[in-house]
């Protein structure tokens, strides 16, 4: 087994890792659909999106890692669980297709808003990554939103599954918009938007998607997930053990 690496926990690094890990972990979850999606065409679509997300994660990890002498593979595969800073919503098990569709709608809407703002980042490389990623996120959002409408406004069963998924997922969304010192740093240096500034536009877009899907926006709850501070659910360890096993067993292994 290869030992874990230690990471810098500067606000800048944390800001970059929160974003990279959102892409990385959601990409890993979407990849679990490969060979299991309801239809062949959708199987390919989900795998495409997983690869888009992993591509975004690679660019961000390469950029973040360069500042601390680490490469993308080390950052992706050799960190301990608590050094992954993705919001909890992306690590939840893939669930049924309704769960995946609604999570994709929520996260891709959020990512699209983030990437749009990051195009004006004071970090030129981050701005360049955002310029490419925003196109991908736009498609992911449209794809998920279309499915949300089909399933939400579909059969009794698809609607029931959507409502259940929405109920579960909604509790994890406030974490996306809670500010802390990392956000204060990003906002003050022009690195990127503070999390809270995306809340209103996100809610407006979600209300539009859910409205068209004839699904009611769930009520807010006081529950706060803590993934972006490194405190994860019990699902994260299982995900990482699978994701990391190859690189831990064959250090530096590459295609």
């Amino acid at each position: 087994m290869t030992a874990s690496i230690a990471i810098d926990r500067t606000p800048r690094q944390q800001y970059l890792l929160r974003l990279s890990d959102t892409c990385l972990i959601l990409g890993q979850r979407l990849g679990e659909w490969c060979g299991h999606a309801p239809i062949l065409e959708e199987d390919i679509a989900l795998a495409n999106m997983a690869l888009d997300l992993i591509g975004q994660a690679r660019a961000l990890l390469t950029h973040a890692g360069a500042e601390q002498g680490l490469d993308e593979d080390q950052l992706a595969f050799l960190r301990d669980e608590r050094d992954y800073l993705n919001p909890t919503i992306v690590e939840l098990p893939r669930g049924d297709f309704a769960f995946t569709v609604l999570r994709n709608a929520m996260v891709s809407t959020w990512l699209r808003l983030v990437w749009e703002r990051l195009r004006e980042s004071s970090d030129a490389e981050l701005a360049a990554i955002a310029g490419k990623a925003v196109k991908e996120a736009r498609y992911h959002q449209q794809h998920a939103a279309d499915w949300a409408v089909r399933l939400g406004d579909g059969t009794d069963e698809s609607r029931r599954r959507c409502e259940a998924a929405l109920e579960t997922l909604w509790r994890y969304t406030p974490e996306l918009f809670d500010d802390d010192a990392v956000d204060a740093h990003a906002a003050s240096t022009g690195l990127g938007p503070a999390a809270s500034t995306l809340r209103e536009p996100w809610l407006a877009e979600m209300a539009e998607i859910l409205g068209e899907a004839t699904l009611a926006t769930p009520a807010d709850s006081a529950f706060r997930s803590t993934g972006k501070r490194g405190l994860h659910t019990e699902h994260m360890g299982h995900l990482l053990s699978e994701m990391q096993s190859l690189q831990r067993a064959f250090p530096g292994g590459a295609w």
Partner: peptide, 20 residues
Amino acid sequence: SLHAADPKMAIQLARDVYTR
């Protein structure tokens, strides 16, 4: 060719399946 429920889905899936 591919299977899809309507024109919009057909275009999206065509993009995903045939322009990768």
